[in-house]
Amino acid sequence: MASFKSEEVAAIHRHLHSHLPSDPALRVKALESLAIEKGLVTAETIDSWIEAYRDHIGPKRGAAVVARAWTDTDFHARLMDDAAEAIRDFGFEGSATGHLKAVENTSDTHNLIVCTLCSCYPFSLLGMSPSWYKSAEYRARSVREPRKVLAEFGVDLARDIAVRVWDSTAELRYIVIPQRPKGTESWDADRLAGIVTRNSMIGTDRDLTLETC
């Protein structure tokens, strides 16, 4: 009977404390509350960052930049020369795009972006990175066997197309400019932006389809 009662007490105990957050959630609460008290950050900064990256900043920004590059030769030249400066036209500069390089796919070259060290990514231009980009598997294999990784993403590259893998760092991030699909010659930039996928700007997608997202 004693063991039954102790199990019952444990169950009540678990129920009473079931609203206790997880250990990492508690560690973040500790960090955030102390950082605010010490004046290292403000609650408003944290809240507005989360709202921006949860609800507003995403790959549509990068798609707008790609579409402009396809339709505006002057902008294209500026983007390839200094991407960090060119995206200021859109007001897209910010987190992790202080130094940004645009790399362009051609009929004989394909570009692939990775961060082998951690997860460096042009957040203010593409939003939060997908979970696979942060995985140990992608970070290791995209350098070692890029064609195999691309095939798994559905990109079967012909042998005569070279693959260039760009390793992002805290100081330099990348965006891939995919090729403009044939049959879009009469399209304006807004319509073109609708077919540019997030993965195509990382390099894990190549041939864009004409279906508007």
Partner: peptide, 18 residues
């Protein structure tokens, strides 16, 4: 959802703010 857990977002937000 962009973030599976609120603490995921809070961690990156604090890092970016610092």
């Amino acid at each position: 959802p962009v973030f599976a857990e609120p603490w995921h977002a809070q961690t990156l937000a604090i890092a970016d703010a610092l």
